[in-house]
């Protein structure tokens, strides 16, 4: 484990350094894509805390993503807050929504948990449409360039945007890396492996699971708020079922319960969908095929395969 610690630090530090280096060499199109991917991968990291490490499969994470995005966007639009306080409002919204969802949904388990989270997220999406007078529903609203200047940094500039996305991603990545080595992370894994045993050992399983839901929801909300701020658009699409399925797909493909899995999965799926949408408008077909194939043949995902075949120490 001690050797693994140094190696994993080198690996993850190397990935972050590579992402920083790419900032200087990538052509504009891929540069913009990668900024998007890093924000979405942060969302996937949030999802992975709950799904990969705690073993709770949620079908409603779009609710958290949208809570962050709308918490930020509505605070700007209707309360006239600057980007800094608006981001904090987005985080607070994510925290509150995930705490409420956790308290209710964690009374169920397994399939019922999946359906309850799906239903809450669906109700949230429909509520965004219903209160269209404030949220502008499906159409969404644009965050003007003048409102996207945080601490004197213009986030609508592609270079700054990339670095901001990288900062968010690095923060989330290092936080998970730290978390999985802490006792809290170990207890989450223990709950995933055998909930009954964790309870017998004297852990308050409900409290740990609630902590995981809140942490996961808040990270997802941070990604949602950052997405709205960096790309200047807030819309109800981001609250739809599709955006609950995406993080599941990314994490499954990349490898549930691995620190790097979310980035790998998001990167692969983003480019797969990007390439196929050039060929056909039915680009979600790729998502469906990948979901079925991964479930059938590689339930541990790409990083999981790496861990099983090559690097046993991969966190």
């Amino acid at each position: 484990m001690s050797g693994g610690g140094a190696r994993s630090l080198a690996l993850h530090g190397g990935v972050l350094a590579l992402l920083l280096a790419l900032h200087f060499v990538l052509p504009a199109y891929h540069h913009g894509n990668l900024a998007r991917i890093m924000v979405l991968a942060s969302y996937a990291i949030g999802y992975n805390i709950l799904f990969g490490y705690t073993g709770l499969l949620s079908l409603g994470h779009a609710l958290f993503f949208a809570a962050g995005m709308y918490g930020m966007g509505l605070a700007m639009r209707h309360a006239g807050l600057g980007p800094g306080p608006a981001l904090a409002a987005g985080l607070a919204a994510g925290l509150a929504v995930s705490a409420a969802m956790g308290l209710l949904a964690l009374r169920t388990a397994g399939v019922a948990f999946m359906i309850v989270t799906l239903m809450f997220a669906q109700a949230g999406y429909l509520a965004l449409l219903y209160f269209g007078a404030w949220t502008r529903g499906d159409e969404g609203f644009v965050i003007q360039q003048a409102e996207r200047i945080l601490w004197g940094i213009d986030l609508s500039d592609p270079g700054n945007r990339y670095l901001a996305a990288l900062a968010l991603f690095a923060l989330c990545l290092l936080a998970t890396l730290w978390l999985v080595e802490r006792p809290f992370g170990k207890v989450l894994v223990a709950i995933r492996e055998n909930e009954e045993r964790a309870r017998m050992l004297g852990y308050n399983v409900f409290a740990y699971k609630l902590g995981a839901v809140i942490l996961s929801g808040t990270v997802s909300a941070a990604a949602g708020a950052a997405y709205g701020l960096l790309f200047g658009y807030v819309g109800a699409t981001f609250a739809s079922v599709q955006y609950s399925i995406f993080p599941l797909l990314w994490v499954l493909l990349g490898g549930a319960g691995t620190v790097l899995g979310p980035l790998i999965g998001t990167l692969f799926m983003f480019y797969l969908i990007d390439l196929s949408s050039g060929v056909t408008s039915a680009y979600m077909l790729v998502a469906g095929v990948v979901l079925v194939l991964v479930t059938l043949f590689a339930p541990q995902g790409l990083a999981g395969l790496l861990r099983a075949r090559l690097w046993r120490w991969l966190p």
Partner: peptide, 15 residues
């Protein structure tokens, strides 16, 4: 896993 697989099936049939 059945739920995940049938979500995949959903998108395949629809698309």
């Amino acid at each position: 896993r059945t739920i995940v697989a049938t979500i995949g099936l959903l998108y395949i049939l629809q698309q």
